[in-house]
Design a protein around this nucleic acid. Structure first.
Length: 153
DNA sequence: CGGCTTTGACCTGCGC
DNA sequence: GCGCAGGTCAAAGCCG
């Protein structure tokens, strides 16, 4: 899988496509240049929060028959535009993160993909994006993602 | 006027 | 059973 110079939405679409298994997505083999230290899960939270578990590199991201993809991007912008149209439906402060988490779902009729966006509580320069589900339509967007500062979590 | 964001309330799952 | 934390709903208001 070649990475550089693809748009952000293409990056997301590839991750969600059937040609890439959840195990591959979770594996650092996918993109050797992303083998930086994976951001550690705060051990204090120890817990059991399923959302944290699913973000760990060792966790498979296939959930409930759907696909969950999480990655971390260095960005000053809260919203990483992936070309899809999202409608915000909630905002929540989390226990282990001073920054709120925002909830979106795809605003295309009949598409029930959800997305969560939050700033990394331990390093505010990063944004954690989690997609739940697979779009049943194409994205019209053409935007860029930064292969240097994005990696899987 | 329609679609979106905001916001507090409500719901639910889980651990104790 | 209770309380907490995370997830969702829906009413109100904003904006193009």
């Amino acid at each position: 899988m070649d990475l550089p110079d693809i748009s952000f939405f293409e990056f997301v679409e590839r991750l969600m496509s059937d040609e890439v298994s959840p195990e591959v997505i979770a594996s650092p083999m996918l993109q050797p240049q992303f083998q930086k230290p994976i951001h550690p899960i705060p051990s204090s939270s120890s817990s059991s929060s399923s959302s944290l578990k699913c973000m760990s590199g060792s966790e498979k991201v296939k959930v409930d028959g759907g696909l969950r993809i999480a990655f971390r991007t260095k960005s000053k912008l809260e919203i990483l535009d992936d070309g899809y149209k999202w409608r915000k439906y909630g905002k929540k402060s989390l226990k282990n993160n001073p920054n709120p988490r925002n909830y979106y779902h795809c605003s295309i009729q009949g598409c029930h993909v959800k997305k969560r966006v939050e700033r990394d509580g331990e390093d505010n320069s990063y944004v954690i994006t989690t997609y739940d589900g697979v779009h049943n339509h194409r994205s019209p967007g053409v935007l860029y993602y930064d292969p240097i500062n994005t990696w899987y979590i």
